[in-house]
Amino acid sequence: MTTGLVFDAVLAFSLVVLAIITLRQRTPGEAVVQLMIFGLLLALSWLRVDATDLALTEAAIGSGVTGALLLAALRRTGFGKPFPSAVSAWLRYPVTIGCALLGVVLSLVVMHTWDSPAGLTDLAYAHLKESGTQNPVTAVILNYRSIDTLLEIGVLLVAALSVYTLSGPASGTPVKPPGPIFRFYMRIMTPIFWLVVPYMVWVGGRAPGGAFQAGALLSGLGALTLLGPSPWPLRLKRRVVRWGLTLGFSLFLAAAAWMWQYGNLLAYPPDQAKNWILLIEIACTLSIGISLTIMFAGCAGWLHEDPKRAS
C-alpha cells in the first residue's frame, strides 16, 4: 500500500517536472521528443487509476500519433532552429501570477469536493447488460453518449479535410528511398498490423480496446507505408480515399437516422445494439485510420503528389 503510494507520488511529481522540462527545451526537435516521453509516462499514470482503455489510447494517439505529426511538420519548418525568446516581461509576469492563482484555486476546489458522492458509476453499470457490450467505456462512448462520438467523428473528418485543403502542392521535401532493411521490416510488420487491428476492434467489446486504438494502429501502418518504397496510400484513387474517409461519419449518421423510428436518435433496441456497435466500430476504425494518415501526410507536405524521391 505504502509502496504504491510512494510510486504514485514520484510519478505525479515527475509528470509535472517533465511538463516544465518539455516547455523549456531550446529547439523544436528536443521539445517533441520530451513531449512523447511525457505522453508515455502519462499513459503509465492512467494505468495506476484503472483507466486501461485510456492508457492504450494515450500511448497510441496522444504520444505516438501526435509525436509523428509534430515531427512530420518539423520536416518542413526545421528541427534545430532554437526558439526565439518569450514575450516581454510586462505580459509574462501578470500571466504567470494569474495562472498560479488559478492553479491554487483549482487545487483547493478539488481537495474540498473530493469526498462528494461519485458520479454515474452505478447508473452506467446498471444498464451494461442492455448496452450490447461488456466494456463500460465502450458502452459510454458508443451507446449512452454515442451522440458525442458521432460529433467527434465529425470533428475528425472536418480536421482531415482542412489539412487536405491547406497542404499546398510541392511543399514536400525529398525523401531518400529506404534501404532493404526497412523493406524487410515492412514485409514482416504489415501482416502483424492487419492481425492486430481487427483484434483490437473485436476485443473492445469486453476488454480494453476499440475503434480509437485500432484506428491509431491503422494510421501507424499508414504512416510507415508513406515512408516506404511505394507510398500506395498516396496513389490510391481519390474516390477510394474519400469513401473511406467519410464512411465512419456517414454510417454513424445513417444509424442515427434509422433509430429515429424507435423514438430517439441513436437509441439502439437492446437486441440489435451489439451488431450496430460492431458495425459502427469497424467503419470508424477505417475512417480514423485514414483521417490520421491524411493528417500525417498533410503535415509532412506530401499530400498532393508522390514524395519526390532523390536517388
Binding site: P178, G179, I181, F182, Y185, I188, M189
Partner: peptide, 10 residues
C-alpha cells in the same frame, strides 16, 4: 526488437 533494430539502422 524488430522495430528498434530498424529504427536504429535508419
Amino acid at each position: 526488437l524488430l522495430s528498434s533494430a530498424t529504427g536504429g539502422f535508419l
